[in-house]
Design a protein around this nucleic acid. Structure first.
Ligand SMILES: [Zn+2]
Ligand SMILES: [Zn+2]
Ligand SMILES: [Zn+2]
Ligand SMILES: [Zn+2]
Lengths: 161, 161
DNA sequence: GCCGAAGCGTTATGAAATAACATAACTAGG
DNA sequence: CCTAGTTATGTTATTTCATAACGCTTCGGC
């Protein structure tokens, strides 16, 4: 995550141990309900995202993919990311070219992010698009999806200035 | 713009002739007021954006840069784009890796886009972020900038389905 | 004129994403 | 079972997007 941040790296820690296993198991269960397959590459990329302290770039995932240090081939990771996004287990942050695991309950929700410019953390939140939708639809548009990414300072980084 | 669209390409036409000259002159005047320099490469890239029917990729600009067909070198265009964004004459659309000229009056405003998934047009609009800001600030965040990109169908493409 | 800052041209490289095609694994019908 | 259709993976190569680094020029204050 944000390498140039002077704050505690663990302010937004990733999952490990039982919490990680539980999250993966929940994804597994969700897949079984919808007849989707959480195959090894998909599971591995999901694990890496869940373990991370912050948004991961695709090539970070590629480098970290093999437990033995062997990198993955790019399509392996990009395909897994496509699947995880489709199922709602992960989100792409456009303004960072990076990916995060979904932290919200329930699939198919609308995602938005608060991105700290100091420590690099990306906090997912539930956006309120009603005003935007109203404006767009009054202009004749049919809105399908909305990307919202706010940048600023997280509470931890704000206090120190 | 959207190459695979069956609709009239000129539904969202670029500027030409006097309108183009006027827009460039307005940017020139704006620069003089703020002691900024609209140098030849910056002016050229702005012209290309204003002439275009829709969002332009950086390498589209690079290819179109020379009136004699000679492409620009990438840094030439990327530096110009950085300047135009800083001054508010252009915006980057993150989800397209593309650029558009600003269509709003007054610099320093917040930009948001309605992007048609059929014809590729990108309509700039003035967003209402009050709900998002309230949510973010109640969570302790200090928001500096917001990126909002909505995708769907423009009025022209909506009617035909 | 001198000097520091800003801008530009150029070469080269790095980072992000996908195309294309062959192989393997599930899964449903017979 | 077996076999055809579909989904997923492995692999190679390429394309697309963006920036680093360096030297030269231009601009504007002193
Ligand atoms: Zn989510
Ligand atoms: Zn922070
Ligand atoms: Zn604008
Ligand atoms: Zn359209």
């Amino acid at each position: 995550m944000g390498a140039d941040c002077h704050h505690a790296e663990s302010a937004h820690p990733g999952l490990e141990g039982v919490a990680l296993a539980d999250a993966v198991a929940a994804a597994q269960a969700q897949c079984e309900r919808t007849r989707e397959r959480l195959t090894p590459p998909r599971r591995r990329v999901l694990e890496l995202l869940l373990e991370s302290d912050g948004p991961m770039k695709a090539y970070d995932l590629i480098a970290a993919y093999g437990q033995d240090g062997e990198p993955a081939k790019p399509p392996t990771v990009y395909r897994a990311l496509e699947f995880l996004e489709r199922l709602g287990f992960a989100h792409r942050i456009e303004s960072l070219n990076a990916y995060v695991p979904c932290k919200m309950e329930g699939a198919g929700h609308r995602a938005a992010f608060l991105i700290c410019e100091c420590c690099g953390a990306a906090q997912e939140f539930e956006p309120d698009f009603s005003a935007q939708f109203a404006a767009a639809e009054s202009a004749g548009y049919a809105v399908r999806t909305v990307t919202l990414e706010a940048r600023g300072l997280c509470p931890a980084c704000k206090v120190e200035g």
